[in-house]
Design a protein around this nucleic acid. Structure first.
Lengths: 176, 176, 176, 176
DNA sequence: ATGTAAGCGAGACGGTACGTCTGGTCTTATA
DNA sequence: TATAAGACCAGACGTACCGTCTCGCTTACAT
């Protein structure tokens, strides 16, 4: 069932991702899908998590810019090469029109999503490279950069920009 | 006509924003709307631009963090208080499923959207506070931060986070 | 559903007979109607058949003009008093612009429609009042007379003309 | 303008005969068409009359069946070879949904249309072959036969049926 | 070994919106 | 002053999905 959803996303993108189409492809009845995933958003969350599970590195080289770069490239590469990117795009789109989808995005996806990013900044904070109090906002900036690239269709491996981004976030000492 | 579109967005959000509804509300025929805005995205772009036009300050106090903070607060406030926020949310959502909408977003909205942000960083670069070569990525980080807040429904005036974000981006010297 | 179609035809005639209107009146979704009757013509055929079913007499008094008169008056009276007349008018109109409707008219309606008329002429042929070889053309003349009256809005009970028509068709011995 | 209407009827039949299409083809504005022909029916009447004008023979050989056959074959041939047939089909169809079209059909087309037919029967009445009082109904039967063939798409030159029809109508002595 | 219930596929259903086409009317700009 | 061009409101067209619902059918458990 999830396999069918992944197929649809891979072949036709989020535009062709309808419950009808997934049911048709899975050889399943629509009510069966609704029984397990009450909304399209729930299905997308599960596709995303299933697809990304344990796939991301948690780099810890002791060098913050290098870690940030490695992680960002891994994330972007995952978006390019699997339905996960389409799923996240769809999930975010869905959340703009449906309160339920926004909640699903926020409560079911975000915790796991943030975690590797916060881990990298956390290590840097422990090494004194960034202030602990900045971790939230730094993660948000980092996330925002990647989301914006995803949502505008720029998931190519733009090393120069990624490294520059990593350097900027790493050098922000926050000291007045 | 645009007024009707704004009304719908204000009252029912992007979820209720259908061409049918806009036509009904405007007392207009659907084909008339399609004549002028071939897709929903085009209509959203125009609503956004019309609503935001000349509303944004272009702060230039000589203090980069202060300028960034002021601009961000103005942008978020604009999103809260007018249909512009709903329009941008809808436009981004639309772009996830339609190539045409992505193009509209990219070519018709982005140039104007970026401009005040780049202006602020440009002034800072001229003052030597940031490297000119970083302007692109800094703008992207700044944009990404705001977009992510919009798309996750956090458009409240979170001064602490905004100031922290501004300070981080301003202190990123970019020195190797 | 058919009841709603009949209502619309009765109240607003063929002019107001749109799928939208029938759906509205039936409290049904348009796709449901399209599922069962792929075209307006199919719906009209069914209305006609359902309405006329087993309603016509099959007169057999041994007197051809009398039989023809009785049948014609029954047919015209049926057209006046029920949506069947409107349905047939609409069906014929529809067939002028749509190949599919023409086929529906020809294959789904005509066989049943002709049958009582041919029966009357068949009996007369068996009695020697008309030549068997003339049955087809006689039926066509008889049909044509009635259709023309229907299509030009003359469905009143014009006994004089009907009897004259019956007499003419009955006296055509066909002998050279 | 009429030429454009004829073109449309010839090329796409009554199905493609919209005022829009005629205007487009004629390089004229729709209101201009509406000024001269307040309804589609009026335009169709004019196309029919213009196209058929003075084209029909008025056979008078002294032999009623022969005259009827010749006239019927001429009429059917005219319908096959020119937009006139399409125009009449369209006009009749139009009349089923619009009172105005029915009036136009009845008052503007019928007088001229009937005339050659009534002329043939009139001559026969003068020769004593049919009763004068039967002329109306005979014309109606004859018309009905031809209309029915037109409306069901049988405009081919079916000589056998036509001659049989002519013989039947001619032999109806009308004797009590 | 058999009766029963849960879960399934299939798909019909009432609805909403899509984007297109046409019918007529009303407004401009030209000639 | 009248006409061409065409914008406009209105609403029907036929299609795609939505989320709910009702069916039988099939398994797999409890008797």
């Amino acid at each position: 069932m999830l396999a069918a959803a992944r197929e649809v996303l891979a072949e036709r993108g989020f535009a062709g991702f309808s419950i009808d189409e997934v049911a048709r492809r899975a050889g399943a009845g629509k009510p069966t899908i609704y029984r397990w995933w009450p909304s399209r958003a729930d299905l997308l969350v599960e596709v995303y998590l299933g697809d990304r599970a344990a796939r991301l590195p948690e780099p810890d080289t002791g060098n913050l810019p290098a870690d940030l770069t490695a992680l960002a490239r891994a994330i972007l590469s995952g978006w390019r090469g699997s339905p996960a990117g389409q799923a996240l795009r769809g999930l975010i789109a869905e959340a703009q029109g449906s309160e339920a989808a926004l909640v699903a995005l926020w409560e079911r996806l975000m915790p796991g999503w943030d975690q590797p990013i916060r881990a990298v900044f956390g290590q840097a904070a422990r090494r004194g490279e960034v202030e602990a109090a900045d971790i939230d906002v730094l993660s948000e900036l980092y996330s925002g950069f990647l989301w914006r690239r995803l949502l505008t269709g720029q998931t190519d491996d733009d090393r120069a920009a990624i490294e520059r981004m990593a350097r900027i976030l790493a050098s922000g000492r926050g000291r007045k």
